[in-house]
């Protein structure tokens, strides 16, 4: 439930300029999908957004204030499995809430809620090594939504999953997003996924990364992959990238 403003974000590793004067806004409750060729610095972009990397120039504001990990509640879901193998599913989910010092009562209530949300009630006491890939990703999603984030960053979370599983998790994410109205920034290389889920689509160029195109996705929800208009939108985005 927050507005994100990025003005003239630039970053370079040594002499190599990675992010080149990127400016955009994400309104409250928006679902922004960022698409770009592999190796166009998407992960660097996300990490710079939350000051995990220090940036050379530009500013990032959440609800008007400079982004600060302690003040703002931000959740980050990555492609690599970020569940902690020494914690059970329940402890993993509570990790974020404990860091943000939720009250005991709220902690338990939220844990039940998100476990039900991703359908993992039965697996609360399992260890990550006993779970399949899609269940692990669900744990990360539950952990992220548990802290009621102002901003949810997702870096190709479904990159490794089978096709039918990916469809299912995409629908699930849209449902949760509609329920919680969280602002989501979702990065992917898969254009179909971006067109299927986004309210707005932003296309990045190759390094040094610039914003090539930023437009609203008019298709009504729920969308169908084989619809005429869907394929047309998908081709439009593909031509913008043309890495393939």
């Amino acid at each position: 439930m927050s507005k994100v403003e990025v003005n003239h974000l630039t970053k370079s590793f040594g002499s190599l300029k990675v992010l080149d004067d990127i400016s955009f806004q994400v309104n409250d409750g928006d679902f922004l999908c960022i698409v770009g060729p592999t190796g166009c610095g998407k992960t660097t972009f996300l990490n710079s957004l939350v000051k995990l990397y220090d940036i050379d120039d530009g500013e990032i504001l959440i609800n008007g204030e400079e982004v600060d990990l302690n003040k703002h509640s931000i959740a980050y879901i990555m492609q690599e499995y970020s569940t902690m193998s020494w914690l059970t599913v329940k402890e993993n989910i509570q990790f974020g809430m404990k860091v943000r010092k939720f009250s005991k009562e709220k902690l338990n209530r939220k844990t039940e809620e998100v476990l039900k949300m991703v359908g993992l009630e039965k697996f609360a006491d399992y260890y990550p090594e006993q779970l399949s890939a899609s269940m692990l990703q669900r744990v990360s999603i539950a952990r992220a939504f548990a802290v009621e984030p102002d901003l949810l960053l997702m870096d190709e979370p479904y990159g490794q999953l089978d096709l039918e599983l990916r469809f299912r998790l995409e629908d699930e994410l849209i449902r949760i997003w509609q329920e919680t109205k969280t602002t989501i920034v979702f990065i992917t290389h898969n254009i179909e996924e971006a067109v299927y889920m986004s309210q707005r689509i932003m296309v990045l160029t190759n390094k040094p990364t610039k914003v090539k195109e930023d437009f609203v996705n008019p298709l009504p929800l729920p969308r169908n992959v084989t619809e005429e208009k869907f394929i047309e939108m998908r081709n439009k985005v593909t031509n913008l990238i043309k890495w393939w």
Binding site: S132, S134, M135, D162, L163, E164, L165, F167, R168, V225, T226
Partner: peptide, 12 residues
């Protein structure tokens, strides 16, 4: 693709 994916059972 749409037709085939209807027949594929999902794993859980």
């Amino acid at each position: 693709r749409e037709e085939i994916s209807k027949h594929v059972e999902t794993t859980e």
